[in-house]
Write a protein that binds this DNA or RNA. Structure first.
Lengths: 230, 230, 230, 230
DNA sequence: TATGAATGAGTGTTCATTCAT
DNA sequence: TATGAATGAACACTCATTCAT
């Protein structure tokens, strides 16, 4: 399956606004004006993500976003300048909290392999096969037409991710866990199978399902040597 | 109905940089009616590839394709049923000869590593950073909206590629070149960095150019162990 | 989806000559949103009728309808699904109230001949040579390509009209006003000259104007015998 | 049924050219250049009639005419200036021989009723429910947009037909066969049921088949009085 | 004379954006 | 602030007409 729109896949700030599109306008009389606005905005973001992922930028209709978000078409323009900037902001809005969470790294206890395995494990759960995975594909798809998106994604996610991986790899080399010293020059090699898994799930899951977890384990064995006990 | 895909339509479509949108109609005054038709078809394929890669399916205008191909809009419909099937056929038209060439494998002389290196080397030259690389990105981008394209690509390219890689890996294991036996179960790991390089060049080359050749070398070192002499 | 046909959409559509393509947008500044919508719909119906009658279905351009109705082309699609269903609905919209009026038959006072003469007289005034007459010609013209229109017209107008005429004829026979008993089997004979008059006015009025009233009188004389006093 | 494309419905001059569209170009080597051209022209006329009747002027594609006629699209332009004048000429081409035949009236032997019955009978066989009947409907449909067609049809068919009917009616009155003297002023009344039958077959045959022969008999009874023996 | 590939103006339909309510 | 009717530019696709062969 390609996408299981897990609630967990969305930062809680966003989840808060994702409500039943058909809810009566009076449902939440207690919320302040500002809260209502934030909720609507969140609903739009939510809906827009789904539509953009499902259809791509150009083929997505604002009408559908509005319908899915349970707002009028005009309302979108109270929150976003136009379709393009909505798309650009969207990526930021969805990615920022993810980065924030990843940046708040888990305590660097244990071996480097343990760290990376923990990382891979959460990547498996939270990205591969989820809507966030599709977002990655969306960025691959639209990046060339949205340099600002590619820029942002490179700056916030890719370069940081690469840097973090490099640091881990260097630590692994220093500790003797990793033999291949040149790996630190190409941390992309470390994450490549994970990225491939993301894309594979989107495109070929139905042709040949991929056991991403097992593949990542094999890959780590390759880098760290086979584990004695697992 | 679509005209039978003349061989003449392919050569220029393969040449990565081959395009000459403004070429005068006098280019080949001696050519026969059929030859002219094949040339036009090839020009359309050429132009369409460029436009689809640059803008994606939905955002590409047939007007632009026609202009770039130097034909009238109506002419496109003499060769393709509509925009969608043009896109689908296009992928086939461009991919088929590539597959054909790869299928005509080089003589399996030398070590497995040599074989894979030869493979990587031609991949580097002929895919990464070329229009064919962009085609891969295009398929990743549009695959979910064009199941027939994803199907075709999986069947003709991915499944064959995976099978070929698996065979090589197993040979490598048998010959003792590769230590990690489980690699044969996930040939994706072998090709992942190459795919990542393709995508990287499309998206992030301008942020941080990637020395794909060197990266692939490191990756092979990881798999085969470091080379004694290089 | 099409909006519910508001009653307000009909009156102007019925008035044979009512059209004011260039009426300023200020015509009804006090009208509510819904009223304005109904007015627009009516203007479109009005304009579309004129265009379809003047050019036939295929040759009518939505652009022209929009221009004549004083709305943007896109507005038409807020009221009608597409050109075809617009045409089909149009016939219904214009015919339904006519049928409604005819169904509310006049009190069956006086002789059968008087009844039929009253009928003929209102037909003369309200159909022959008016836009409604042209609508009949339009249905004859487009019926074979719009079975649903032919079906509707047969069901709502023709079969009812035939039945009503048959009832009158039988009454006339019973009362001894009509001698030709078989006429009840072919009420078409009774209405044929009226239909011919409708078509004649559309096609040949300029070659040889037809005094439809007098012709119908002669026809009734044929059926009922010559009137003693007229 | 609306149209049984009887061979008999076409003047023999036209029938001659109606051949299998897929016939080889060499089939008739004996025919002279001019004969071949005439045959092609006839085939085009034939095909065009069918298409125009089936779809109306605007919706008919020259492509389809060419295909049906078994000629190339360009060939049509060797015989006709453009689509419009083809349509106009077509009506002339098809109608002229019909008129010619009718003008060569049968010997005026017997009673007026016999004459008219003979006439009705041949009208029944050769017009109602045949392609010629559909041509009448086509003229009704397109007449307003093709004044030249309406003019021609009025001049060649309608006015002559009316005149002929009037002459017959006057003869009938003179001979005492027809009582209603005013009928001579409106010969339309005499032919109205026949015309209605033509239209009915095109539009409503499937809803309620009409026994045109019997209807015409009743109509003649109305005019001439019931027949003693039949 | 006959062909049919090529043309490009024209048309139905969509959809991002605006704005009166 | 929110709405959704209205707009009109834009686009895919068609088809009468032309013309090189």
């Amino acid at each position: 399956m390609t996408r299981k729109p897990t609630k967990a896949a969305l930062p809680s700030a966003i989840r808060a606004g994702a409500k039943d599109p058909a809810r009566s306008k009076e449902e939440a009389p207690a919320s302040s004006r500002a809260t209502r606005a934030a909720e609507r905005r969140a609903a739009i973001v939510e809906a827009a993500m789904d539509e953009f992922i499902a259809r791509g930028f150009a083929a997505t209709r604002l009408d559908d976003i509005a319908k899915r978000a349970g707002v009028a078409k005009g309302t979108i323009y109270l929150h976003f300048k136009d379709k393009e900037s909505m798309f650009e902001e969207l990526v930021r809005i969805v990615i920022v909290p993810v980065v924030a969470r990843l940046t708040a790294l888990p305590p660097p206890a244990g071996s480097v392999r343990d760290l990376i395995e923990a990382f891979a494990s959460s990547f498996l759960k939270e990205v591969i096969g989820t809507r966030r995975g599709d977002l990655v594909r969306l960025i691959v798809a639209e990046g060339p037409r949205f340099p600002s998106v590619a820029d942002f994604y490179y700056r916030e996610v890719v370069s940081r991710g690469i840097a973090a991986m490099r640091a881990l790899i260097e630590l692994g080399i220093a500790r003797g866990e990793i033999r291949e010293k040149d790996l630190a020059r190409y941390p992309q090699i470390l994450v490549a199978p994970a990225m491939i898994a993301v894309i594979w799930q989107s495109l070929f899951a139905r042709h040949a399902p991929l056991d991403a977890q097992e593949m990542l384990r094999v890959h780590l064995d390759l880098i760290f040597g086979e584990r004695r006990t697992t």
